[in-house]
C-alpha cells in the first residue's frame, strides 16, 4: 500500500486494534475529528466510542487515566495533541509510567503508547514545535522512539503495541505528509532499540533521527559522500552498538538533531563514543543541533533549526580535521 506517515500510523493502529481488543485510543479531538493531523481518522467508525475516546481537555488526566487503564490490563494509546502540551502530563509520565513496573516489581507493567507530534519547520504557533525526546529519555523506564519514514512508523507502532512497556511515540509533524512509500499492508514490526543504517560508507558517520534524516540524506547525496547515515529510530534505550561500530569504521562522526545542543541527545552519543571508541577517531566529534534557547516563534524558526548549510560545514570540519 502507498502510505505517508499519517496513513501508515493510522493503518498500524487499525491493525493493532483488530489484533487486540485491549488496545484503546484516547485523547483530545481524536474520535469524531480524527485528530488534528487526521492520524486517527476513521477509527471511531470502525471501533466505536468505547475504544476511540474523545476526552476532556486535560493532558495529565489523559496520561494518568491511560496509566490506570494499562495497570488494569488494557493497552491504551493516548494522543497528546502537541508535544508542547505534554509537559502538563510530565508528572504522570516520569512518576508513574516510568516507575510503576519497577515499584511493583513487575506485578503492574504499563503497556501504553503515548503518541504526540513533535519538532518544527511547519510554521506553527508557540508550543507546537518542541523536540522533547531527552526529557523522556533521562529517567529510565520509558522507551522513546521517533520514526523518520512511513515504513518505520508503522513497524515501530506495531512493535510498541506488542510490548508491555510505556513507549513515547514521537511523530515529526514535518514528515507526516512529506513522502509516500510503498509499505506492506499486513502487520510487521520494526525492532525497538535498533538503528537503521542508511547507505554505507567509509568517509564519515552521520548519526541522526526524525526530522533531520531527510536533511542528512540530501547533503550526503548532493556532495556524493560515502557516509553511514545512522537513523536511530529509538532514542532510548538506544543502539550503542551500531553507533560505536560506525564510529570505529569511519573515525569521523557528525551528530545531527533538531533538539537543542546543550544536554541534547548528541551529548550522550558523543560521550559514549568518547568513552569507548576515542582512539579510533580521526577527528573531533561535531554536533549539529538547534540553538540552546527556547523554540522561537515561526518567523524565526528557520534561523533556529539546523539546515543543510550548517550540516555541510560540520561535515567539512570532520573531513578536514
Amino acid at each position: 500500500m502507498q502510505a505517508n506517515m499519517v496513513t501508515a500510523i493510522n493503518n498500524a493502529l487499525e491493525l493493532g486494534m483488530r489484533e487486540n481488543e485491549d488496545v484503546i485510543l484516547l485523547g483530545e479531538d481524536i474520535a469524531k475529528d480524527g485528530g488534528v493531523f487526521r492520524v486517527t481518522e476513521g477509527l471511531l467508525d470502525k471501533f466505536g466510542e468505547e475504544r476511540v475516546i474523545d476526552t476532556p481537555l486535560a493532558e495529565s488526566g489523559i496520561i494518568g487515566t491511560s496509566i490506570g487503564m494499562a495497570i488494569a490490563g488494557l493497552h491504551p494509546v493516548p494522543e497528546i495533541q502537541f508535544a508542547g502540551f505534554m509537559f502538563l502530563s510530565f508528572s504522570q509520565l516520569v512518576n508513574h509510567a516510568a516507575r510503576y513496573r519497577s515499584r511493583s516489581r513487575s506485578n503492574y507493567p504499563v503497556p501504553m503508547v503515548v503518541r504526540t507530534p513533535v519538532s518544527g519547520g511547519v510554521k506553527t504557533l508557540e508550543h507546537h514545535s518542541e523536540s522533547p525526546e531527552v526529557y523522556y529519555s533521562h529517567m529510565g523506564g520509558l522507551i522513546v522512539v521517533e520514526p523518520s519514514n512511513p515504513y518505520d512508523a508503522k513497524g515501530l507502532m506495531l512493535k510498541a503495541l506488542h510490548m508491555q512497556d510505556p513507549v513515547i511515540f514521537l511523530e515529526p509533524t514535518k514528515l507526516y505528509r512529506l513522502t509516500k512509500l510503498d509499505i506492506p499492508e499486513d502487520s510487521y514490526e520494526v525492532p525497538i532499540g535498533k538503528a537503521n543504517i542508511i547507505g554505507t560508507g567509509d568517509d564519515l558517520s552521520v548519526i541522526t533521527y526524525g526530522t533531520m534524516v531527510p536533511i542528512a540524506k540530501s547533503v550526503i547525496e548532493k556532495r556524493k559522500l560515502n557516509a553511514d547515515i545512522i537513523d536511530l529510530r529509538t532514542i532510548n534505550p538506544f543502539d550503542e552498538e551500531a553507533i560505536l561500530e560506525s564510529a570505529r569504521k569511519t573515525g569521523r562522526v557528525v551528530i545531527l538533531h533538531e533538539a537543542s545542543l546543550t544536554f541534547g541527545p548528541g551529548a550522550e552519543i558523543a560521550a559514549r563514543i568518547a568513552e569507548k571508541a576515542v582512539f579510533d577517531l580521526k577527528a573531533p566529534i561535531v554536533r549539529v543541533a538547534s540553538n540552546s534557547l527556547p523554540y522561537p516563534f515561526p518567523g524565526y524558526e528557520k534561523y533556529h533549526i539546523p539546515n543543510e548549510l550548517k550540516l555541510s560545514q560540520a561535515i567539512d570540519r570532520v573531513l578536514t580535521a
Binding site: E50, S60, G64, G68, M69, G73, L74, H96
Partner: peptide
C-alpha cells in the same frame, strides 16, 4: 496523582 489512575482502572472494569 493516583486519582487519574483510579479512573483508568475503573474504565477498564466497565470496558470489560
Amino acid at each position: 496523582t493516583q486519582m487519574p489512575h483510579a479512573v483508568g482502572i475503573a474504565y477498564a472494569q466497565k470496558y470489560k
